[in-house]
Write a protein that binds this DNA or RNA. Structure first.
Lengths: 257, 257
DNA sequence: CATCATCTGTTATTTTTCTAACATTTTTTG
DNA sequence: CAAAAAATGTTAGAAAAATAACAGATGATG
């Protein structure tokens, strides 16, 4: 890659910075070179941009990432999450105000919200906000603050109070670890405040986790299992969770999706 | 479109709800039909999904929208905005905390932030947050609240106080209308509070507008022109703005980009 | 200025995607 | 159950995109 090539790449990158795509022919016009030169530039670059059917786009844009690959295991993972979210969605009623946690577990749930007439979603995650922002029937409240790349979510000192001020019907919480003795945990400490605030203010608290999280403890503890009304999980995790039912004073109901 | 076709479309739409793309072959596998059937389904649907080089995606996803079309006027518009933002970017120093307004005018500015070692960006716009969120060198503070589709931004009663609490060096403000007598205005009333708060707390206030906004008054007034330290604009708008300089008690400096 | 290396444009070829046509299967209807 | 209609699959051809190969242009170097 030479100087002029780098210049062209920078120019294109700037054009694409705000999101969107640009057709090869237009990229060529913009830079005043042939389409072939643009192809060569992009091929010789560090892979920041790629072509998708003749359209140039930023490669690192998660929007362009293939949802999943049926040939790999990711497909089954996705379908499992989908099933889990279908179970979770059965708790939603018309007009509800929902708290939706960060992470990828609850993403399939968002597409199911289109079925309703009117809902309100409260979240502190950027990926959730982007997905909900496209739904015309859902009011979106995003709890802002300092952005954390790691979890695509926001954290702030006022998060706890901000959540408490809202009238949340149902809280859908995800977790990175669920242990019968040591409780429910996640990776990032800034997630603790919004999760706990949602658990305290929501009328119905729903934990959505698959079997891979069972028996795992992560750095940031945020609740005991008894803090939830319902645990939506898969068939593999259900027995262990149900066994607990007898011992605890107020065990959550276990729903197998 | 029949029942099964609708089922398949719904299935695919769910797969794409969280953003991303899915290849035609995978969509066919997922639905257990041939690729041709998927093509027909999508063609007969309401246009919610489209193909781009064999990849299926949500049509309304702004991420996939072409950045601009050189054949139409939009191309020159884009380049003008780019120039404007280059002028605006010259005011940024290493370590600054920037307030970035909503709208599309300032989007090209964001890609120029990658040049710096460390910056902080404060915004209340979802599109700005998405663009800044990809920059590793920029800390992002998003001011949350209720989402407004119209301007892709958030509004809340606490917006004013939230901005005032932050230490903002430079505020980059966009506007839909600039009139020498009747001041600077925008379309949406919920934008007034954050704009005014930013103007009050920022050390340096920079208005970025092109000539098409000059002499225009929009419903939501938010400031007099004298509230700004600098106006970054194009050659076409500069004369009218400079003429004002003599009369006003503290006229903004006009920078032609 | 001549020579070399590099960059770019043009053309040709292969691959992939898109469209259309027709064959087959499934569902509906009398 | 037979006929008609609809849905789906298969194949073939057209269009577009991706790749490769070669030729001309540009710029550096001695």
């Amino acid at each position: 890659m030479n100087g002029r090539s780098a210049m062209r790449l920078a120019r294109l990158q700037e054009a694409l910075a705000g999101g969107g795509t640009i057709h090869l022919s237009e990229a060529a016009k913009l830079c005043g070179v042939s389409e072939m030169t643009i192809r060569r530039d992009v091929a010789a670059s560090d892979g920041a941009m790629t072509f998708l059917g003749g359209h140039l786009m930023m490669a690192d844009n998660p929007q362009f990432a293939p949802v999943y690959d049926l040939d790999e295991q990711r497909g089954s993972h996705y379908l499992a999450k989908q099933r889990l979210c279908q179970g979770a969605a059965s708790f939603i009623d018309e007009g509800d105000t929902l708290f939706i946690d960060c992470g990828t577990t609850l993403m399939p749930l968002l597409s199911m919200l289109g079925e309703f007439e009117e809902l309100t979603v409260v979240t502190y995650a950027l990926n959730v906000a982007n997905a909900v922002g496209t739904l015309p029937n859902v009011r979106l409240v995003l709890l802002g603050g300092l952005y954390h790349h790691s979890s695509q979510s926001f954290g702030s000192g006022e998060m706890y109070d901000a959540v408490r001020r809202l009238g949340i019907n149902k809280a859908f919480i995800s977790a990175a670890g669920v242990d019968l003795e040591r409780g429910v945990s996640c990776f990032h400490f800034h997630e603790v405040a919004p999760k706990q605030a949602a658990l305290e203010s929501a009328l119905c608290r729903i934990l959505v986790v698959d079997a891979s999280k069972l028996g795992v403890v992560r750095p940031a503890y945020f609740a005991q299992l008894t803090a939830f009304d319902v645990v939506v999980t898969d068939a593999k995790a259900a027995p262990a969770l149900n066994a607990r039912a007898g011992g605890a004073n107020r065990p959550p109901r276990v729903m197998v999706a």
